[in-house]
């Protein structure tokens, strides 16, 4: 954890990344104090990978101010050596085996734990001597996951690390992540769209949509910040009057409305009196509701049409 004298791990000020006429990251201002597991959530093409590429200087920003560990990361070995970012489609030297990739990682990451890497390789049943280009998609993902975990970098990014990994392997990843993070606290930024699977691992959530951060809050604050009220149309309308509505559905005389509001004991009692059902909204549902109004695909979309959360009432 950071003492107040240390700069925040990440500080972004009005950062934009432009590709031709698309803004993949659009005026992001963000501060990450670190020492936590952060979830970077959003749809495909929302700007998750671009944001991580900016932070690791793999693909620098077009404009704005980027600071990682208090300095700009571009061509800055002192800063870079404290981070680890394995891309979702990470390329490896064609003639390398996983064992050689790990040997290489040991050269660059000062906290590298070879025993841990070996244990993980065994758990993922990764053939260490096989050429990387002959590995399956899942095994390739395992190589990235193992480097990311065993590097124990102060700032570690996992970009959709589970492509091709089955449910069991993903569970191994989550378990080892929690376990190792408990023993070696550090800053972890996990980008994922399997939100239900990772929701409980996250301490803080960043939701990015059309290149903009539309939610930046502690996971525990988000839990219970929205609810779905179901019941007779008029009663639901009555109950939800004046509350921000994320989504509305109708089935016959039954209406289901998702509201972005924290319901207290009194509200719940009143809902019960009215015969209304109140169901919790999972992080995944909340993310879907908050990003659904935006046009599909992110990339190629004019970011100026990006939706402000307050405009999300008109969900399709």
């Amino acid at each position: 954890m950071n003492t107040p004298t240390q700069p925040p791990v990440i500080e972004l000020n009005n950062v934009t990344k432009r590709y031709k006429d698309t803004k993949a990251v659009d005026g992001v201002t963000l501060r990450i104090d670190g020492g936590r597991i952060y979830g970077l959530l959003g749809r495909n093409g929302a700007g998750k990978t671009t944001l991580m590429s900016i932070l690791t200087a793999q693909d620098p920003e077009t404009s704005g101010d980027v600071k990682v560990f208090g300095q700009h990361p571009y061509e800055n070995d002192a800063v870079l050596s404290r981070m680890c970012f394995i891309r979702e489609s990470q390329k490896y030297p064609e003639d390398f085996s996983p064992a050689q990739a790990f040997k290489s990682a040991a050269l660059f990451f000062r906290n590298w734990d070879q025993d841990f890497a070996d244990r993980l390789a065994e758990e993922f049943a990764l053939p260490l001597k096989r050429r990387i280009k002959k590995l399956s998609r899942g095994q390739l993902s395992a190589v990235g996951v193992i480097i990311g975990l065993a590097a124990r970098a102060e700032l570690t990014f996992f970009d959709e690390p589970y492509l091709g990994l089955d449910a069991v392997a993903r569970q191994i990843f989550y378990d080892r992540l929690v376990e190792d993070y408990s023993l070696h606290p550090r800053t972890i930024i996990l980008s994922s769209h399997l939100i239900d699977e990772v929701a409980n691992l996250l301490e803080h959530v960043l939701l990015i949509d059309n290149g903009r951060i539309i939610l930046d809050d502690d996971a525990e604050n988000i839990r219970g910040s929205a609810a779905t009220v179901t019941g007779e149309d008029s009663k639901v309308t009555d109950f939800t009057a004046g509350l921000p509505i994320l989504h509305r559905e109708r089935l016959g005389s039954l209406t289901s409305v998702t509201i972005e509001a924290r319901l207290g004991t009194a509200d719940r009692a009143r809902a019960a009196e009215l015969g209304l059902e109140i169901a919790p909204v999972s992080l995944q549902q909340l993310v879907v509701r908050k990003t659904m109004a935006a046009p599909a695909g992110g990339a190629g979309v004019d970011p100026r049409t990006a939706t402000d959360p307050s405009e999300l009432e008109v969900a399709p």
Partner: peptide, 14 residues
């Protein structure tokens, strides 16, 4: 072969 990998190893281009 190695430039993209070196980026993952947190090595500057220089």
């Amino acid at each position: 072969y190695t430039f993209p990998f070196s980026q993952a190893m947190s090595v500057s281009r220089r």
